[in-house]
């Protein structure tokens, strides 16, 4: 079978139908789970989220699959393993906050919210349909669990700084996690916010940069390079952790250090690959918002079975 692709990167696949069931609600890592069990829980959740995500993008004919697959491990780790939030506490003032600043990865967020139990899994089939709450970019007025409306880049981090100030004013131990793209760090508003967070020593704030090194049109380093990124973040007053953003154990370890002992805000540079772990998408700039063919979906699902 011939597979249509601009890049001719997709090997022919002997198409076997993959039954796609509804996404299960896995919820948080069970209390008392061993580290191995915790990591296994997150790994399985990430695999299922990727399965559902690619089908949502295929069905909608729109989406940002590359940056979704790079950030899914971070989102799953935060929602299922780190943040003190649950469907029951979605309105609790003392909940931890998670902001997805790279709002174009909406399908990844929605699927993660579904597997965590915040939205019904069957709702995912409405992604980008008329009047759906699952807009192409997340809107706080449409979904309770969405803390901030995002989409235009460079908005989530300043908002998260405000959330961290609110927590400090309340004398609360709640934490704020904000996930940005790396291309997004070209936005000046992010550096305004980093300077504010560093100078005010907002130790309850954690910035996660999804460092997939690709932006919409080209590699970040060939567009407007961020390096030396960790040096810059340290210079702005942050504790910085460089981690493999697809290693759930490493992510858990980094997030466990928030708030930092030093009193500084934390930055986690999560080194990832756009399109991970799909062979024909991974680290390929063409897959920023390319929509997979049905054959490509099936090939990806086959690869995810083995991941």
């Amino acid at each position: 079978m011939n597979v249509e692709t601009d890049e001719d990167l997709v090997p022919a696949v002997d198409s076997a139908a993959h039954a796609v069931g509804d996404l299960p609600v896995m919820g948080r890592i069970p209390a008392g789970a061993s580290r191995d069990d915790a990591v296994a829980h997150l790994r399985e959740a990430a695999r299922l989220v990727r399965r559902r995500d690619i089908q949502m993008v295929r069905a909608a004919g729109l989406g940002h699959i590359g940056g979704e697959f790079s950030v899914i491990d971070t989102l799953v780790t935060l929602y299922l393993g780190v943040a003190n939030i649950s469907p029951e506490t979605v309105a609790d003032p003392e909940r931890d906050r998670i902001v997805l600043s790279k709002g174009h990865a909406a399908a990844a967020l929605y699927t993660t919210l579904a597997i965590a139990g915040f939205i019904p899994p069957q709702e995912l089939s409405t992604f980008m349909q008329p009047q759906a709450m699952l807009n192409g970019h997340p809107a706080r007025t449409k979904i309770d669990a969405v803390e901030a409306s995002t989409g235009p880049l460079g908005h989530g981090l300043p908002i998260a700084v405000g959330m961290a100030f609110a927590g400090r004013l309340d004398g609360s131990s709640r934490r704020t996690f904000v996930v940005t793209g790396d291309g997004e760090m070209q936005e000046g508003s992010n550096w305004e916010a980093l300077m504010t967070a560093g100078n005010h020593r907002l130790s309850n704030l954690c910035v996660v940069i999804d460092r997939n090194r690709l932006q919409q049109g080209a590699r970040v380093e060939d567009t407007n390079d961020l390096e030396p990124l960790t040096d810059k973040l340290r210079a702005f007053g942050f504790e910085v952790h460089d981690v493999d953003g697809h290693d759930h154990g490493a992510l858990l370890d980094a997030f466990a250090q928030v708030p930092s002992a030093s009193g500084k805000p934390t930055a986690v540079v999560a080194h990832t690959l756009k399109g991970h772990p799909i062979s024909f998408m991974s680290n390929n700039v063409a897959w920023h918002h390319k929509v997979p063919t049905q054959e490509q979906v099936e090939l990806a699902l086959t690869e995810l079975e083995k991941s």
Partner: peptide, 17 residues
């Protein structure tokens, strides 16, 4: 830093301020 300023205001609103 006006963009930061308005974003911070929105984050404060999220925190009930």
């Amino acid at each position: 830093a006006e963009q930061d300023m308005v974003g911070v205001g929105a984050g404060l609103a999220n925190g009930g301020k």
